[in-house]
Amino acid sequence: MTLREVVEELSAEVLHGAEEELNGTVATVAAGDLMSDVLTRATIADLLVTGLSNMQTIRTATVAGIKSIVIVRGKPVSPQMIDLAREEDLVLMVTGMKLFEAAGRLWARGLRTGETRA
């Protein structure tokens, strides 16, 4: 699905990301609040969905090579996070939905988790 469809499905607000970037497609997800878990995946996910909203959210995505982030539960996102997302060229959005609901909806639209490294 495209990132724009993710925005619609999750009723998300885009905090950083140009219009044309939202045309990009995503197929795999890393979802959770623990960043080391995100970093264990052998395949690089297209989308990080997390309830964690701090600088490490952005930096973990950068290190893991994940290009887009959805912050759930309507957690406040600091201006520094948005600046860093811009600097690292990541799409950053926030939704009021909870992680469970977001997971259910993205799964229904065909998104899957990448495998965990053996």
Binding site: D33, L34, S36, T57
Partner: peptide, 17 residues
């Protein structure tokens, strides 16, 4: 630490991998 998104006990194992 867990509230900050860390503490899964996977950091050092990740490094080893």
């Amino acid at each position: 630490v867990r509230e900050m998104g860390f503490g899964a006990g996977m950091g050092i194992p990740n490094i080893i991998k």
